[in-house]
Amino acid sequence: MKLYFAPGACSLCPHIVVLEAGLTAETVQVNLKAHQLLDGSDYYAINSRGYVPLLELDDGQRITENAAIVQYLAERAPDRGLLPPAGTLARTRVQEWLAFVGSELHKGFSPLFNPALPEEARPIFKKKLLDRFGWVNQQLAGKSYLMGEAFTVADAYLFVITGWAGRVGVDIAGLENLAAHQARTRQRPEVQAALQAEGQA
């Protein structure tokens, strides 16, 4: 397998999951500004949408989108417990979290990463994100991870996206449960390894 990534991007999520699952994947860095690989080749020729992550399987098939990629990876290593069994309510709950992180948190950062966003609009988007993070903070009360004591693919996604808050001036310092989740997840050896591999440690 090949995992196409960019340092600091959401592709850190499947990178973490590859390691948590005990799988092996070649990592291929993408320059998102130029939409090129480091050798200068055109990334659009690999992914017509031009963004990361993208997982290329050994037979050449390609999977995009974090939620799809991490579920595929977790299913390759069911003994690791990164995704509950198909057909269970627990599985649906993890998928629910993946959808929430993707739509309510991840995409909530998009306007704030846009340099063309008028300054007067920034507080509106920051408040919406902070409200969403506040809700997550409440859900984490009394838990080590989103599903309780078990680390899942949803925790990897939450960890990566929450890490962006400081980059856009969203102050989550007062959200103690979320801060504890971030610290706990960061201490995981596989998370440390992924961060180091991407130069983010």
Score class of each variant (00 low, 15 high):
33 K>G: 07
35 H>K: 07
37 L>V: 02
37 L>Q: 06
38 L>C: 01
38 L>A: 03
39 D>G: 06
40 G>E: 06
40 G>D: 10
41 S>M: 02
41 S>C: 07
43 Y>S: 08
45 A>K: 04
46 I>P: 01
47 N>G: 00
47 N>E: 09
47 N>Y: 09
47 N>I: 04
47 N>A: 04
48 S>C: 08
49 R>Y: 05
49 R>A: 11
49 R>P: 00
50 G>I: 09
50 G>T: 12
51 Y>W: 13
51 Y>V: 13
52 V>E: 06
52 V>T: 01
52 V>H: 07
52 V>I: 14
53 P>K: 03
53 P>C: 04
53 P>L: 03
54 L>P: 06
54 L>Y: 14
55 L>H: 06
56 E>I: 06
56 E>L: 01
57 L>V: 09
57 L>G: 07
57 L>N: 13
57 L>S: 02
58 D>G: 02
59 D>V: 04
61 Q>K: 12
62 R>A: 03
62 R>I: 05
63 I>Q: 08
64 T>H: 04
64 T>C: 11
65 E>C: 02
65 E>P: 00
66 N>T: 08
68 A>L: 04
69 I>M: 05
69 I>W: 01
70 V>Q: 11
72 Y>Q: 06
72 Y>E: 03
72 Y>C: 03
72 Y>A: 08
73 L>K: 05
73 L>C: 12
76 R>I: 13
76 R>H: 15
77 A>R: 15
78 P>W: 13
78 P>R: 15
79 D>K: 11
79 D>P: 04
79 D>T: 14
79 D>E: 15
80 R>T: 14
80 R>F: 08
81 G>D: 11
81 G>F: 12
81 G>I: 01
81 G>Q: 13
82 L>K: 12
82 L>A: 07
82 L>M: 11
83 L>E: 13
84 P>T: 10
84 P>N: 13
86 A>I: 14
87 G>M: 12
